[in-house]
């Protein structure tokens, strides 16, 4: 551990000498550059689920109003929204496809 710290320290000094050190390279940043604290991740996952539920229920409600079939499409799309929310959270933790492009 100390060896790596020493290397990081030396690398930092060398980068600073060359004027390459950037504060943006936060050590706590996750793989897609977002902060990876436990609370931040939890909040993000929760918001993903809730917003997918809102989008699903809203879409279902709108379609119901258009087609005049009130509770049914709303109920179906509420479930679809829940599935989409779980998928959003899954995507949050799985490595993004094509990120290396």
């Amino acid at each position: 551990m100390t060896e790596r710290d020493e290397f990081d320290e030396r690398l930092k000094q060398a980068r600073q000498r060359r004027g390459l050190e950037k504060d943006a390279s936060d050590p706590k940043a996750g793989q897609d550059g977002l902060p990876a604290g436990a609370l931040q991740i939890g909040l993000r996952a929760g918001i993903e689920v809730v917003s997918a539920l809102i989008a699903g229920a809203g879409l279902g409600w709108l379609l119901d109003h258009w087609l005049g079939s009130f509770p049914w499409l709303f109920l179906v799309f509420f479930v679809v929204g829940g599935v989409a929310g779980v998928m959003n959270v899954y995507r949050l933790f799985s490595p993004r496809r094509g990120a290396g492009k």
């Binding site: 909040l43 809730v50 989008a55 679809v80 929204g81 989409a84």
Partner: peptide, 17 residues
């Protein structure tokens, strides 16, 4: 439908956060 809802949820999660 799941993908469409997931795509539509993007502006909501962005703004609610």
């Amino acid at each position: 439908p799941v993908e469409v809802v997931s795509y539509l949820s993007r502006p909501i999660s962005l703004s609610v956060r």
